[in-house]
């Protein structure tokens, strides 16, 4: 899109990209830990009202 970037926008993009990467890795780690703890089975038992 046209025009020069406003001052500081490159830094904001960098910090936002870094924040996304940190969030995504942390989210995947929490999900992985939940799967490792075999929580999926308990979710199935609860949701299927078994």
């Amino acid at each position: 899109m046209g025009g020069a970037d406003p001052p500081g926008s490159a830094g904001k993009v960098r910090s936002r990209s870094a924040a996304f990467l940190v969030t995504a890795v942390a989210a995947a780690a929490v999900l992985g830990f939940g799967i490792f703890r075999k929580e999926i089975g308990e979710v199935l038992l609860n949701a299927a009202l078994l």
Binding site: T23, A27, A28, V30, G34, E39, A47
Partner: peptide
Amino acid sequence: GTLQHFMATGNVPYYGIGTLSVIGS
């Protein structure tokens, strides 16, 4: 419902929070 179930059983809902965090991110 999943988050509540884990809280009601005294556990941290890692799987539920993790799923929503992955989708949210």
